[in-house]
Design a protein around this nucleic acid. Structure first.
Lengths: 154, 154
DNA sequence: CAAGATTGACGAGTCAATCTTC
DNA sequence: GAAGATTGACTCGTCAATCTTG
């Protein structure tokens, strides 16, 4: 019954390995981030993106794009981050529809504390098992999939 | 402040690309599965694993391992699948603590209908942008990460 | 009417607690 | 006491509806 353009043997194996890897890796990283900082992967990425932006501020829609998040997801996340005082929202001066999310000093401090620990986990779980060449090749592969996924480009 | 064993340039680029790829790919696949079958990626994988097992039945803990899921997650998922009549639970004959999840005929039919469509999506989003060599190399890379992630092996 | 952003209800996953059997 | 499995409360993300400004 299941035969319409089925996967080849290599594809099947790769797909299974990819699924398992992303699932287990995501779970492990989520658990670690949660335990050391109370942050979700999503909220960590939001803080990280803000911290790298000049002025540590971004419009909600730009932030959503750069954090690979939907607008509604971002709204919820930022609302939670604001409750805890890590982010603040302001009216956008040039567009009255817009809101600008600003990383607070407290938020920056939290990120500065969390980041090294997080990076260490990423390195241990993800990079240590790979060679330099594999890391570069994986980058090429991901960007190829990304380009196809996101015709608009980022 | 953020300088403890930071990532190299290549690592940074690869990590960002990997994050974006998995996030966007997962979202796209979830949305597609949901729209054509009402299934989650998790529940789809559960049904798929069962369908490939002789007897279309597995103990909960084995099913959890093979579906890369926690026990509690699996309990919730199977409860939902059972409500809709796609899976049924039975006492394990050899261990009175155990439960066996069994794929029903209705569940199998649903999977048989959904699978080709899902595979088509996976092929289009994931495999089409990649060469044969890249697919094999990605498999090698994922298995290397997996091995490090899961010392017990599966 | 389209774009930016938010909200509320609902579905799904996590954690800790619990129950049963080994 | 540990393993198999479940449950309930809580958090997070999605979708559709809504509101406001362009």
């Amino acid at each position: 019954v299941v035969k319409t353009a089925w996967l080849s043997h290599d594809e099947q194996r790769t797909w299974r390995a990819f699924l398992a890897t992303t699932e287990l890796l995501d779970d492990a990283i989520d658990r670690h981030l949660q335990s050391v900082s109370g942050l979700t992967r999503t909220s960590y990425v939001v803080l990280a993106v803000l911290s790298e932006t000049p002025g540590r501020a971004l419009r909600m829609s730009d932030l959503a794009r750069q954090a690979n998040s939907s607008q509604s997801r971002l709204s919820h996340v930022v609302a939670r981050l604001e409750e805890r005082g890590w982010v603040r929202r302001q009216q956008c001066p040039t567009d009255r529809r817009g809101q600008v999310a600003v990383l607070t000093d407290t938020g920056y401090d939290l990120l500065a504390t969390t980041a090294p620990c997080h990076v260490e986990t990423v390195r241990r779980l993800f990079f240590d098992p790979l060679s330099q060449a594999q890391i570069r090749e994986l980058g090429v592969i991901c960007r190829a999939v990304l380009t196809a996924l996101n015709p608009a480009g980022s």
